[in-house]
Amino acid sequence: MNQTIAQLHERKSVRVFTEEPVSASDERAILEAACQAPTAGNQQLYSIIVVRDQAKRERLAETCDHQPFIAKAPLVLAFVADARRWWRGFGLAGAKPREPGVGDFVLSCQDALIAAQNATTAAWSLGIGSCYIGDVLERGEEQAQILGCPRYVVPVTLLVLGHPTEGQRARRKPERASLDEMVFEDAYVDVSDEHLRADLGRRQGADLVDAKAADERLRAFCARKWNSDFAREMNRSVAAMLAAFDGGRRDGDVRGEGE
């Protein structure tokens, strides 16, 4: 196993940081690595916002499912899907571009998330931990306003970074699913009901031989995550984002401070 693959196996979410700041050189290295990520047609359909203003950090911590550690992180990076830059550039060149649509939005999201993953990998190689904040997909109108995102620029993930505490370094990384569960040949396969319950139950720490315990764990996880208020709000928010890209501004325009 080479060093890069080993670090991908070792990297885990870090939510508690020391007071040591992320140096300017490390920050630049992380941002430069992010911008080397694979991208659609070399367009880089994303932008990265380094959030330094403490008031904005506090608002993000509150709007992202009330998580105070966001405001305390040494480095906060917002990755935004940016279909605006090329759209504006085409117009300035007299190309008469169509309005960005839902496909452009999803492609921009892919670019932004791939860049964010490059950033986490680069950070880990520097001894810097990170945590993805998917909750930035909730309350999209507020997130866009906080980050000053105009039309066709949408926050899709937030990344907080810093040096892990000893406790975080020692914390065991949750076990990922086996390849047998995750990888198929040529086509997707719906596994048997029993196999699925056993696999997902094991992911929740239930004894493989205790089907009742597995079901109890799955029901609890469903209530906590899948059926939660934040999950329902996230779906409302993302639907509004898609509406803003579907034939222009309809009911769900998700914008920030200005056109």
Rank of each mutant, 00 (worst) to 15 (best):
V50R: 14
Q145M: 11
Q3G: 04
D210I: 06
V136F: 01
P150A: 15
Q3A: 11
F230G: 01
M1D: 07
E175Y: 03
R236S: 06
G162D: 01
D53R: 03
A211S: 10
S192W: 05
D111S: 09
A231L: 02
E142P: 05
L60A: 03
R217W: 00
S25V: 12
L92S: 08
A220R: 00
C64A: 12
S23R: 07
V22T: 07
S25Y: 05
A24H: 04
E138L: 10
F230H: 11
R88C: 05
E257L: 15
R232H: 08
N235L: 08
V50W: 06
A78P: 08
G134A: 10
A24V: 07
S125D: 13
E141T: 12
D180E: 04
G167Q: 14
R171I: 03
R15W: 03
A34V: 15
F79Y: 09
A95S: 11
A40W: 15
E99S: 06
E27S: 09
A244V: 04
L218E: 02
A115W: 05
A83N: 01
D246R: 03
G103R: 03
G247F: 00
R11A: 11
T121L: 15
D186T: 15
K173R: 15
A244R: 06
P100E: 05
L107E: 07
D135G: 05
Q168F: 03
R85G: 08
V189R: 07
R15M: 09
V238M: 09
E185K: 13
A6S: 14
D65Y: 13
M241P: 07
V136D: 01
G167E: 15
L113H: 13
A223M: 08
S23E: 04
Q7Y: 10
H9C: 07
A24K: 04
L208T: 11
K56Q: 13
H195Q: 14
A239E: 02
Q3N: 07
P155G: 04
V156Q: 02
L92Q: 06
V191R: 05
P97G: 00
C131D: 02
R52L: 04
W86V: 14
F79K: 02
A33F: 13
D190K: 12
Q3D: 06
V191H: 05
G101R: 00
S130F: 11
R139Q: 09
T120V: 15
G140D: 05
G162K: 00
E175S: 11
D111A: 13
Y152A: 09
G148P: 11
S13A: 10
K72Y: 01
E62N: 02
D207V: 09
A95V: 11
E32V: 14
A198E: 11
K173Q: 13
M241E: 07
T39K: 15
D111H: 13
E138Q: 12
L8Y: 14
I133L: 03
G248R: 01
F17S: 04
D246F: 02
I146H: 09
Q43H: 10
L147A: 07
A61S: 00
V238I: 12
Q117Y: 14
P38I: 15
F17L: 08
P97F: 00
D253N: 11
A34E: 14
A40C: 14
A187G: 08
A29P: 04
S130G: 13
Q36W: 14
G89L: 13
I30R: 09
A231V: 04
V102P: 01
S108E: 08
G148M: 12
Q7H: 10
I128V: 04
A115F: 03
V209W: 06
F184H: 13
L218H: 01
E166M: 14
D26S: 08
S25H: 08
P21V: 03
M1I: 06
